[in-house]
């Protein structure tokens, strides 16, 4: 089972500069744990206090994961994941 994850510029320090990496997992939470094992440090940039960080957006097949279960969102082989930091400020 392979799921492609698009990594934003600011997090490519964790992926050796790679724009996209692959991982596996039946849920977003499991996928992030799997990514952490090959790209240590990544998880902490995505998750805070057991939930997705407020200003990090994760999309599964173009859907904001917050609308489809958040970290519990179910994933399938071939899903396309995109991680994008929010563009926001004060």
């Amino acid at each position: 089972m392979a799921i492609e994850v698009r990594i934003p510029t600011i997090l490519r320090t964790y992926t050796g500069g790679e724009k996209a990496v692959t991982g596996e997992g039946a849920s977003l939470s499991a996928l992030i744990d799997d990514l952490e094992s090959s790209h240590p440090g990544l998880k902490d940039r995505l998750i805070e206090d057991g939930d997705l960080r407020r200003f990090v957006n994760v999309y599964v097949n173009d859907e904001d994961v917050r609308f489809i279960g958040g970290l519990d969102a179910e994933l399938s082989d071939g899903d396309q994941i995109v991680v994008l930091p929010a563009v926001a400020g004060g």
Binding site: N57, Y59, D62, D64, V82, L84, A86, A88, G89, G90
Partner: peptide, 23 residues
């Protein structure tokens, strides 16, 4: 030009769906 989804005088944020479309 993006819509400020926060619609606020003290904060701005791109709408998450529009952000993905943009990228």
């Amino acid at each position: 030009e993006m819509v400020n989804a926060a619609g606020s005088p003290t904060f701005y944020e791109f709408d998450s769906t529009e952000l993905l479309q943009l990228y």
